Simulated scan of single mutants.
Amino acid sequence: MAARRLGSPASRWLRPSALLFLVASALLSAPSPARALRFDLESGHTKCVSDEIKVNAMAVGKYHIVGPDPNFPDAQLPESHRISLRVTSPYGNNMHYAENVQSGHFAFTAAEAGDYLACFWAPDHKPPVTIEFEFDWRSGVSAKDYPSVAKKGKVDMMELELKKLEETIRNIHEEMFYLREREEEMQDLNRRTNSRMAWLGFLSLGICLSVAGLQLWHLKTFFERKKLL
């Protein structure tokens, strides 16, 4: 009796690239949440935000102080409402610095992989004041301004969506390789740790046997000196 093949023809033709395409399509079709963050910063204090960015990934950010009166958002801000910002790389290199400003923006291409840190602080005031500001930080595919690209290149909406899809697939592909590298690093670290623990165990066993031998030798010499043996 001939063996029967399992699975439908459609499932046999489903490749990882097709799965990747479906995942990317689902990500693009889902509504993207708001990325802007709003903070309350007291004068004389510091608040920091971190974001993990890969090598050669673009990162853009913009920030501005929110007016103290919500009924008049365009009113002139008081002189006490100023903040400073420093963005540093995982190795401590300065990517952006602004001092005593009410708004600003930055953009850079990551040369190092890891957590980039953005720290805001406000000068000390007497009496203390609370400054509310909004911070929008994007990296990777979300950092690209696709509407501007479409206007400059006269690209229609279908081509624009295809460009977004291509960038998302490339980003997922790079993320998979990045996670694979991290997994290999963790496996190598586990192997080194296990090897060191094994050597430490042998060393501890050798020390215990040496101490036991010294104790037996000491007891033997003690009993011989007392003429008990």
Score class of each variant (00 low, 15 high):
Leu209Ser: 08
Val211Glu: 05
Ile131Pro: 02
Pro31Thr: 02
Ala118Ser: 14
Ser11Glu: 14
Pro147Trp: 06
Leu117Ser: 11
Trp217Gln: 08
Ser8Gly: 12
Met176Gly: 10
Pro16Phe: 08
Leu85Lys: 00
Pro31Met: 03
Leu41Met: 09
Asp115Tyr: 06
Phe202Ser: 15
Leu14Asp: 14
Glu167Gly: 03
Leu214Glu: 11
Thr109Met: 10
Ser84Leu: 02
Ser210Gln: 12
Ile53Asn: 00
Pro90Ile: 03
Asn100Thr: 07
Glu166Ser: 13
Val87Arg: 00
Lys47Met: 03
Glu52Gly: 06
Leu19Met: 14
Leu28Val: 00
Glu185Tyr: 03
Glu132Asp: 07
Pro73Glu: 08
Pro33Met: 03
Gly213Leu: 12
Leu85Gln: 03
Gly206Val: 09
Met158His: 13
Ala198Thr: 15
Glu166Leu: 13
Asp145Val: 09
Lys54Leu: 11
Leu165Lys: 00
Met186Val: 12
Met95Thr: 01
Asn93His: 05
Ala57Val: 07
Ser11Thr: 11
Ser25Pro: 02
Val49Met: 02
Leu6Thr: 11
Leu160Glu: 07
Ala122His: 04
Leu229Lys: 13
Glu184Cys: 06
Pro31Arg: 04
Arg38Cys: 06
His81Gly: 03
His45Met: 08
Tyr97Cys: 08
Trp199Val: 13
Arg35Ala: 09
His96Cys: 06
Pro31Lys: 04
Tyr178Ala: 15
Thr109Gln: 12
Met176Gln: 14
Ala2Asn: 11
Ser103Lys: 04
Ser195Thr: 14
Gln215Pro: 00
Leu203Trp: 14
Leu228Thr: 04
Leu165Gly: 01
Val211Ser: 08
Lys154Asn: 09
Asn71Pro: 06
Ile131Trp: 03
Phe72Cys: 09
Lys152Ala: 05
Ala18Val: 10
Gly206Met: 15
Gly61Ser: 09
Ala212Gln: 10
Ile53Tyr: 00
Val60Ala: 07
Ala118Val: 01
Ser103Glu: 02
His105Asn: 14
Asn190Ile: 04
Met157Lys: 13
Ala98Pro: 02
Asp156Gln: 10
Asp74Ala: 12
Leu77Asn: 05
Leu20Phe: 04
Ser80Ile: 07
Ala2Leu: 07
Gly104Glu: 02
Thr168Cys: 05
Ile172Arg: 05
Val66Gly: 01
Arg4Trp: 09
Asp136Pro: 06
Gly92Cys: 05
Ala75Glu: 14
Val87Thr: 00
Glu185His: 08
Ala34Leu: 04
Ala34Gly: 08
Ala122Ser: 14
Phe222Trp: 14
Trp13Cys: 11
Ser139Thr: 13
Ala18Met: 10
Gly92Tyr: 03
Val101Thr: 03
Leu165Thr: 01
Trp199Thr: 13
Ser29Ala: 03
